[in-house]
């Protein structure tokens, strides 16, 4: 376990080296927040009569700000390394090392996410001061949000991992991985909360794993999920985590076997 901690630490330090990327990324984040802030304010201003009951503008703006910061943290990705190593044929060495490669990737992801968190936390404080962000209703919601976002991070990792694992069969994964990611932009509720979706679509969209990445933690943060609803949403997150982890484990051993067959 200790060595995976070291991998995570190395990833954290590495992220700090690319300063220009960090600055441009932050600038993009600020601009994006500014634009979305204007968009939601204008939507509520122009449509006061039809604004959905129960979701006030401050709650919506909070959801949006925390959502963009969560995106910054969760959208880290170490798994393209699988594709690169498979293409170059050096994946075999990773199989020989006394380290389980999938766990190494997970540790790397968590380390990068920790670095992003170091940026996101002060940004969240700043946003709370400047943008009138509302805090969660009580301590339970704060804790549940943290745990829920953790599950979201792992689910996002598992989806990326599964997408990149196809490299063992196809060599090309970029398209598949980004398809999942872009579909997630709409279906996870990170840009538009799922409760704004038409009634026909909502049950289906809420059940997909994407909703467990951002939709659930963010809904908890703004106090939209309460009591039984909160627990069942988190139970769904746990279910998706277990299901996807099982699938990832099974797919990984299939991939390992395939390398052995190829390598002769």
């Amino acid at each position: 376990m200790l060595r995976y901690g070291a991998f995570a630490q190395a990833a954290l330090r590495r992220e700090g080296v690319y300063r220009v990327n960090v600055v441009v990324g932050l600038l993009g984040l600020v601009l994006g927040l500014y634009v979305l802030h204007l968009v939601w304010t204008e939507l509520y201003r122009a449509n006061a009569a039809v604004a959905p009951a129960g979701i006030t503008l401050p709650a919506m703006l909070t959801y949006m700000v925390i959502g963009q910061l969560a995106l910054l943290v969760v959208q880290v990705d170490s798994t393209p390394l699988i594709r690169e190593k498979v293409r170059e044929g050096i994946i075999a060495y990773d199989l020989l090392r006394p380290v389980r490669f999938p766990l190494y990737l997970l540790a790397d992801n968590l380390g990068s996410a920790a670095f992003r968190l170091l940026i996101a936390l002060p940004a969240a404080v700043l946003a709370a001061l400047l943008l009138d962000v509302q805090l969660p209703p009580d301590a339970l919601h704060v804790l549940a949000f943290g745990a829920s976002l953790g599950f979201g991070l792992v689910i996002a990792f598992l989806l990326d991992f599964l997408a990149n694992l196809t490299a063992f069969w196809t060599l090309e994964t970029f398209g598949l991985q980004y398809m999942l990611r872009f579909a997630g932009f709409v279906l996870s509720g990170v840009f538009v909360p799922l409760w704004f979706f038409p009634d026909v679509w909502r049950p289906l969209v809420t059940a997909l794993p994407f909703a467990s990445i951002y939709g659930t933690p963010l809904s908890i943060f703004v106090g939209r999920l309460d009591g039984g609803e909160l627990w069942s949403a988190m139970l769904l997150q746990v279910t998706w985590t277990l299901l996807l982890a099982g699938a990832a484990g099974w797919a990984w051993s299939a991939a390992e076997r395939r390398v052995v067959v190829q390598g002769g």
Binding site: E42, Y44, A46, V186, F191, V192, P198
Partner: peptide, 21 residues
């Protein structure tokens, strides 16, 4: 998929709110 997701975000935004600007 990239373009559909960009348009999908606009679509989802304008489900409960009829106009933007």
């Amino acid at each position: 998929i990239y373009h559909l997701s960009s348009i999908g975000i606009l679509w989802a935004m304008l489900q409960r709110f009829p106009v933007l600007g």
